[in-house]
Amino acid sequence: MYTRRGIYSTAVFALVYLAQIMIIDEVHLPFGGFSVFLIFTLCWAALSTPEVGAIVGFFAGLCMDFAPTSNGPIGQWALILAALGFTIAFLRYGDDSLRSDPLSLVVFVAAAVVVALTVYIVLDAVLGNEVGRLSQLFRTVAGNGLWTLAIAPFILPIASRLHRGIFETREFQ
């Protein structure tokens, strides 16, 4: 059962990952654009148990670390998304009021994206990498948050349907 879930989840994430690097990364959107892979991962984590959220976050983060556009050390995104996946699942899983409200879930995911990017920048700075101008960073992070608010309503139903089909335990209404 776990193997089947793992294989299906991997296939789904691989498709989203390919869509990210083949399509989204090629389209130069204003204000930094968005990461459909990051949004999908956070949505998936929000619909899962904390253990699954952490594992999904960790491996999705590894995928992002290995992405051609990534310039940080390997494990940086894995660290952030493992912690964030666990946290978001932990916060969402026991909160029935939030689960019944899709709009709040979208805002929740958008906020998680902003937190993820901010932590990434802070970690980058701590590791001694050049992070760029503060205004540009703010623009990118805020732009990503706004893009997520716009895109997440379309991704969330797909993620919910796939998650329900694979795990058959939780579903998003």
């Binding site: 904390p50 959220g53 390997i74 894995a78 666990f86 026991g94």
Partner: peptide
């Protein structure tokens, strides 16, 4: 809430340590 038990925390710590290990190696 679900996930606050020791097993979940152990998993999280393991993943974080693994990540830090990977960062260090890189």
């Amino acid at each position: 809430r679900y996930g606050g038990d020791n097993r979940s925390r152990l998993l999280l710590v393991t993943l974080i340590v693994t990540s830090l290990f990977l960062i260090t190696l890189d």
